[in-house]
Design a protein around this nucleic acid. Structure first.
Lengths: 351, 351
DNA sequence: CTGTTAGCGCCTTCAC
DNA sequence: GTGAAGGCGCTAACAG
């Protein structure tokens, strides 16, 4: 590989010259469309050989310019730091590749300025579709896409500027709440001992989860008390503080705890780490996200999991025959534990 | 946004027509190079305004074709499923953006066919540089890049076809081994009770970690025993099995355990979850990766952390004035615990 | 069956 | 100060 001059990449002109054919013939052969044009197999082989020898690789920029198809599929998400977003990214990549698209996913750190910036960049690269995941207010991004005529789907958080594909947080919340209530009763405790902790009151996922929480109580002819719902924020520090103040007031931890996000859950773990080891022994806890290590922490824990496979599949489905005026909100069920595990099998040398 | 015909994106021609200027003038103004050409400020403003109104966005495909600069920076990595790779991706994106490049990172699931495929795709999109992280044998990918004249850096695993930026696993291993030995002695146990578990014997990171492990013993005038090093593989199931068989043979867990990867660590956690809760009470354990939840598991655990910031910064440094014949291996120190935490602060609404 | 040609959208040199 | 023209690499008609 040392001898080749690295500056100039070979083009179809080089291949044409080397093989003594014309650029059109080369183009057809290299695209595999040559059978349709009844080009002699011998010519085709000659060209393929020359291309091989020259290390020719198509310039997608030029092809894209000509065809006005970039072959790029874009997705923006906040970060990769939890299993949900990591899974989303992975699944998106896999399914984009199946569709012969080059996946390009970008993390924005939930910074609206970065979100706009990234979207503009992706659009200027002429992505053929854009998925927007976990963006608080996707409308400006939707509008950018609409202006560019690029199909755009909101994932995980709904928006008014495009169709949305969402996990059915309400139903999921009712289900997990129900499980926790059963466990609580089994241990001789009361439904009043269950607390839904974390999240932001005026935000979609939290609203849905609160609704589902109430649904579960209602199905038993009950209503959760005032103190049972504490939307103290998503981040670990907030949940940590909220728990600490409850502890200070009552002298103990709630007997049932439903954490509204893995980050809030992390805050809970941080706080309980400051307590004697068996402070959570009798507690029943649940969480709206799943994490492999969290699942092994030393207390009774139930984790809900979003179905990234279906989420992404639905989003792709919406992009075919995309209807720019579509504002539908598709709901995808969530499930427990390891039900989606297969997708993330590790390879032998993985680490 | 409803009224605009979504099919056609506006071009500089549209902007030129709308503003009554020529395409050249528009181009200069839109590139910010207009001051150099002494274009009237009034004209410039008129053009900017028209562009704004038309929702003009540069077509990077065309610009790239003309300038032979794509504005794309590529990175391939195995997946996003642990904090190291997630951090790498995040940091890469941030630093690429600082350099005015559009980051495009792709996960390959450690599948060599996908790795080659992805590299070819990225190259055909004319990325201006490519980082290759966690690829077992990067040489074929390096050669593809070399043939295309694209700067290419191996991250985290070394290769013969390009410069590499690596964590100093050997030094890190010596340090953490030293810490574990101290703890073991403090508790009245013997250095022989420490086991290095996981990894693949003929693989770079494992080799370095074994060397560091021995260094730590050597510094005390000792040599680890035969059974002290068990490269049973990286994946959780393998570590799980290895521990199970040790347990069957000796009737107890090793008193000191140094896990060679977060996945092997996960296997250990899986196995110990089948034991009585206090089976690990007196154990001393370490791990060559860091995870926020793993850090809160109920036993004495020490985690080593790679410095993704420096890793990426060094890689970028190597790409400027890139020397295609450079085969240097740059070593980056690792550290303990939360030393690189600041980089992943969560926002208020994060989850 | 194969070669010629006209752009895709943009930037830059060179006249005006 | 501004307009016209050429070409980046590729593809798809359209001629031979």
């Amino acid at each position: 590989m040392a001898g080749t001059q690295p500056t100039r990449k070979s083009t179809i002109y080089d291949v044409a010259k080397a093989s003594g054919a014309s650029t059109a013939t080369v183009s057809m052969v290299l695209n595999g469309t040559w059978a349709r044009y009844r080009i002699k197999e011998e010519t085709a082989n000659r060209i393929l050989e020359a291309a091989q020898k020259l290390g020719y690789a198509v310039n997608m920029k030029a092809r894209g310019l000509r065809l006005s198809r970039s072959g790029l599929a874009g997705m923006v998400l906040p970060h990769y730091r939890n299993r949900f977003f990591a899974g989303l990214a992975q699944t998106f990549e896999d399914q984009a590749r199946v569709r012969e698209l080059c996946p390009i996913v970008v993390g924005t750190q939930r910074d609206p300025a970065v979100e706009v910036n990234v979207t503009e960049t992706l659009l200027s690269q002429r992505v053929e579709l854009l998925f927007i995941a976990g963006v608080r207010n996707p409308t400006p991004l939707n509008e950018l896409c609409a202006a560019a005529g690029v199909p755009c789907i909101n994932l995980d958080l709904p928006g008014d500027g495009a169709p949305s594909v969402l996990s059915d947080h309400r139903k999921g919340s009712q289900t997990i709440t129900d499980v926790l209530l059963d466990k609580l009763l089994q241990r001789g405790h009361s439904p009043d001992d269950l607390v839904l902790l974390g999240g932001v009151a005026d935000e979609y996922a939290t609203e849905m989860r609160i609704a589902g929480f109430k649904d579960a109580f209602a199905a038993r002819g009950l209503t959760p008390g005032k103190a049972a719902i504490d939307s103290c924020g998503y981040n670990a520090a907030a949940a940590n503080r909220a728990l600490a103040s409850r502890f200070d007031n009552s002298g103990r931890l709630p007997l049932g705890l439903l954490m509204n996000s893995i980050t809030a859950f992390e805050g809970m773990v941080q706080f309980t780490a400051t307590l004697p080891p068996d402070a959570l022994k009798t507690a029943v806890v649940g969480c709206f996200d799943w994490d492999p290590f969290a699942a092994y922490l030393p207390f009774d824990i139930t984790m809900l999991r979003q179905d990234v496979q279906t989420l992404i599949a639905e989003a792709f489905r919406l992009t075919e025959n995309f209807d720019a005026s579509d504002r539908s909100r598709i709901l995808v069920p969530t499930g427990f534990g390891k039900m989606f595990e297969e997708a993330e099998q590790t390879k032998e040398f993985d680490r």
